[in-house]
Amino acid sequence: MRRNGWLNFAAAGTTAVSLFVLGISILLIVNANYIAKTVESNVEIMVYLEEGLKDEGVEALRMQIMRLPGVKEARFISKEEALASLERQMGKGSQLRESLGGTNPLPDAYKVRTVEPRQVVSTAAAINRLAGVEKVRYGQGVVEKLFRLTYWVRAVSFGVMGFFGLCAVFLIATTIRLTMYARRREISIMKYVGATDWFVRWPFLLEGIILGGGGALAAIGVLYFSYSFLAAKIQAALAFFPLVNERSVLLQLFEGLLTAGVGLGVIGSYISVHRYLRV
């Protein structure tokens, strides 16, 4: 290994760069997913109740809603609460109550969340059929568009990840083949003097592990610092912007990258060695 210094450096560097890019694209995906999920989970169904529904009827409706598949929670919002919240939205100076003349035209309502955001449309339809329901609203039209958008965000990000993953495999395989080519003479001599295939193979596998693992570690280091730096900047500028920053998620990503680096090293060297063993 010491005799092919720059070539090994190139192999480790290539691995590092590929895995770094792969790591970035995975982080982008994780965040895009996270944002999509956050946005999606804000989708909720407003169920407006019929005027003059008795307390028993209100409670019975709640039970019926909760029994529907996919419903996570149903929070009761009384007409009083609704009016208070409307007042808050319109601001202090608005003379809402005065202009309404002491009456409250708003209905009682349930705010329903589903386990899966996607179930909103079908659940809303089911709720609409229940007795005592005046109207169901969930941002019809907008929600469908939102789901289509998040679908494409996911699809594109997986495409990007796949592309960079393939690039990494190709670059590493090429670099290791170059290393092998530089040592084909040594390998053929080994075979001529009676080396077994495994005797020839294992140092190259070891080399692959070290190169792939080293490259992965370098990529992880750079990725960790640049991501922490960027996340801090973004969080400072846009506090509400949802970003994944849990250690467990990052740790999982880094473990994955290290495994990928070592795996790529082993696979790359195994494949490359194979060609030169046919003597």
Binding site: K191, Y192, V193, G194, A195, T196, D197, F199
Partner: peptide
């Protein structure tokens, strides 16, 4: 896999 031993 016996070939290396022949070559020795």
């Amino acid at each position: 896999r016996e070939v290396p031993y022949l070559r020795r």
